[in-house]
Amino acid sequence: MAETDTETYEAWLKRKEEESRTKQNAFMNEIAQKLNRPRVMEAPSHPFRGAPDFWKAYEWTEEERIERFTANFKAASGFVERLTDLEEAKCFIAKKAEELSAHYIVRQNQPELNGMGLEEALPDAKISVWNSDSEQYWKARAAEADFGVVVADHAAAYTGSVTVLSSGDKGRSVSLLPTVLFIILPLERLKTRLGEILIGFDEAGRERLPAGIHFISGPSRSSDIENALTIGVHGPGVVYALLVG
């Protein structure tokens, strides 16, 4: 809004920008004066950007990736099971449901899970498929769930991190809200370095990025209150990574 009748909006905007820059310069000059050194007016050079070439070429064998991922994920209080196929994964989840008396499970709406047969393996449990009913409030359904079941899109052995992407059929709440989370990780998606995963997002371009990119390294951990470590405050307290293949 113009401060005078004759001042145009463009002129007012330009004047306000100049005033703002004047205040910024005065602030930065005062800091430089208190530090007793000249103010730096040019951005420092960055001759190296991104990972060095030797790191880009760093690679582990499949067994090394499995071993390192398992160690790193367990170090963050997660659980890892190596299974032959989805049939074994189904049986493992069914067994845990019986052990932990899980009565309500929410899973992502993915081809791997659709053909897995969890419903037949758990006839006494209610299993909801994310976004399969437009009348449901799915965040609440996920918060009520004993188990959440998702399929990993990527994983990095060096950091022990699993990447789960969001979409209409893959709600982030499935991995964030249930008490126990099961992440099915096909071995061909387990990489050595996190950079192998990130470069794909960069190459895809901003317009084709998923709604959410979530990196999961074990259960939720928080030390916000008096530096006391607490598990499961902001997400699942128990997380299983099921290495399939």
Rank of each mutant, 00 (worst) to 15 (best):
T4M: 02
T6H: 11
L13Q: 14
K16G: 15
E18R: 10
S20D: 11
R21F: 12
T22P: 01
K23I: 07
N25L: 12
E42M: 08
A51H: 04
P52I: 06
P52T: 08
D53A: 11
D53N: 13
E59W: 07
T61K: 01
A71I: 12
A71V: 10
N72K: 15
A75L: 14
A75V: 09
A76H: 12
S77D: 11
R82I: 14
C91N: 12
I93H: 00
K95D: 11
Q110L: 13
E119K: 13
E119S: 10
A121M: 07
L122N: 10
I127R: 03
V129A: 01
D133A: 05
Y137G: 06
D146R: 04
G148V: 07
V150D: 00
V151K: 02
A157Q: 02
Y158R: 13
Y158L: 15
V162E: 00
V164Q: 02
S166C: 05
S167V: 05
S167W: 13
S167M: 02
K170R: 08
R172C: 00
V174H: 01
V174M: 01
S175N: 02
L176N: 00
L176D: 01
L177H: 04
T179C: 04
I184P: 03
L190T: 15
T192F: 11
F201N: 01
F201R: 01
A204Q: 06
A204V: 10
R206M: 14
L209N: 07
L209Q: 08
G212C: 09
S217H: 08
G218A: 04
I225V: 14
N227D: 09
P236L: 06
G237E: 05
V238K: 06
L242V: 06
